[in-house]
Amino acid sequence: MSESGLAAATTPRLVATDLDGTLVRSDGSVSAYTASVLAELDRRDVPVVFVTGRPLRWAREVFPYVGSHGLAIVTNGALVWDVAADGPCLERMIPAEVALAVAGTLRESMPDVLFSVETVEGWSTETGHTHGRRLPPVREDRLERILAQPVLKLLARRDGANPDQFVAAATELVGDVVEVTHSSFPLLEISARGVTKASTLKMVCDDLGVAAADVVAFGDMPNDLPMLTWAGLSYAMADAHPQVVSCATHLAPGHDDDGVAKVLAELLGL
């Protein structure tokens, strides 16, 4: 693995970056330096696409930095949002019957697992299990009711579980019908089969006429692995999950040290 930027041979045509633990600092802010680098890339017509596991309601916090191309990929690739129009460009949903079957299989093996779901309208949860989220749910009801319609993401929480072991166990049970990953504490992030950050980013790049070889990607957690593997040039943050460090071709400074912006400034000679 090379240190930041030193092995890059060409200027990227598109930048794809995760947010939490990657572009955004630990206090939730985007530094003035990072903001200035993003603005300069926008002036140079190099799109910086945010590709995040965040749901829409949290992704809105960084929409002022999206740039003139106007797109953000949220909910691990399940939703592409047109920031200027404030509406969806693409929704890649889990069919209701699939989500309900997956939840049933997981609960049969792990009776203590708790479920919630993400939709464009917000998040809904099983009755009595608000999970300490920042915002109250739009709906709190029985599992079969919150899964009566297609969802962007099914979330499964198991307090006290080892996140990596939790993902491995769930993948063994349901990985043939859905995508299972995680980005922090023991909370499974489950998407429709084939829906990852990488597959949706490829759709966006195809529309823009950008090849994978011309994309540089940044990430820090297992939900970033497909994107980092797909992109022609990939950077793990210095404090990234070990799987991400092993997967990426290069290492960037940490997110609290403006690692993404520093690498981009070097790559583009800012």
Score class of each variant (00 low, 15 high):
Thr127Arg: 14
Ser184His: 12
Ala99His: 09
His129Ala: 08
Ile146Glu: 12
Gly28Cys: 08
Ala96Arg: 04
Met110Trp: 09
Gly219Ser: 06
Pro12Gly: 08
Val51Ile: 03
Asp20Met: 01
Asp258Met: 07
Pro55Val: 12
Val216Asn: 06
Ala169Lys: 09
Leu152Met: 04
Cys247Gln: 15
Pro163Leu: 00
Ala212Cys: 10
Thr17Lys: 01
Arg44Ser: 04
Lys197Ser: 03
Arg13Thr: 09
Ser116Glu: 13
Glu40Trp: 11
Val66Ser: 11
Gly128Ser: 11
His69Lys: 07
Ala240Asp: 09
Trp81Ser: 01
Phe166Tyr: 14
Ser109Tyr: 02
Ser184Val: 09
Leu147Trp: 04
Arg13Val: 05
Val80Asp: 00
Thr75Ser: 15
Thr22Gly: 13
Val30Asp: 03
Val37Gly: 08
Arg25Met: 03
Leu187Met: 07
Glu108Cys: 08
Gly128Phe: 10
Glu140Phe: 10
Met237Ala: 13
Cys247Ala: 15
Asp18Ile: 12
Thr22Gln: 06
Asp214Met: 12
Gly132Asn: 15
Leu41Phe: 02
Ile146Asn: 09
Val215His: 05
Glu91Trp: 01
Gly104His: 10
Met203Thr: 15
Val83Lys: 02
Glu108Gln: 10
Leu56Asn: 06
Leu173Ala: 11
Gly160Met: 15
Ser246Ala: 14
Ala59His: 05
Ser246Gly: 08
Leu147Asn: 07
Asp176Asn: 12
Phe63Val: 00
Ala213Gly: 09
Gly104Cys: 03
Gly77Cys: 07
Asn162Asp: 15
Trp230Leu: 00
Ser109Ile: 11
Gly269Pro: 11
Leu6Thr: 13
Val46Ile: 14
Lys202Thr: 14
Phe50Ala: 06
Val74Leu: 15
Arg92Ile: 02
Gly254Tyr: 05
Met1Trp: 04
Ala8Phe: 15
Pro55Met: 14
